[in-house]
Amino acid sequence: MGEAAEKLAASDPHAVANVSIETQLAVERFLARQAEILDEKRWDDWLALFTEDGHYWMPAHEDQIDGEGVPNIFWENLDMMQMRINRNNHPQAHSQAPENRLCHVVSNVIIESEDATGDIIVRSRFHCAEYLRYDVRNFTGKYRHCLKKTDDGYKIQLQRADLVNREGPFEYVLQWWV
């Protein structure tokens, strides 16, 4: 089990940390910026949001506590993310043409903990609308982020995204991170 997954599993999902307004603002700004980067498909900026060992994780079940070694909807490190970027941008990625359009809203941001080094565990809710081939699809659910405080601002060690409809059935295949 990775360090971040362990931290997340140990964190009380109902905790409300008493943090400074500056910290709350900085974390909210980070989450809003991540959403914007995804909507605008700035992939170099996307990869730079993560630590070198960072993971984007969408579990298939609520009771999963780790993405390693079990079936997931997404479980991607930087290599897999790079592969997805290469692939979705390839001219022969025919199921992705014409390109989709995304719009994310992140809200209900509650910081669960801030440790002595400034690392954060934060939960929030998201809503994402995707427009593809004359159809709008909606994805919604809960995020939990393990953020590492670095000289370069916060970096994601682990992002967990729990879709409300994680059990499916899936009418559609998710090609970008939600």
């Binding site: 298939a60 070694g69 079936p71 997805r84 692939r87 979705n88 025919h94 199921s95 295949v173 998710l174």
Partner: peptide, 22 residues
Amino acid sequence: ALGYYYLVNSPSTMVNADDLFN
């Protein structure tokens, strides 16, 4: 085997996505 299951058949698959579309 789990690696294959994820890459080819998870709801985020980059393989089956193109099959389903075809």
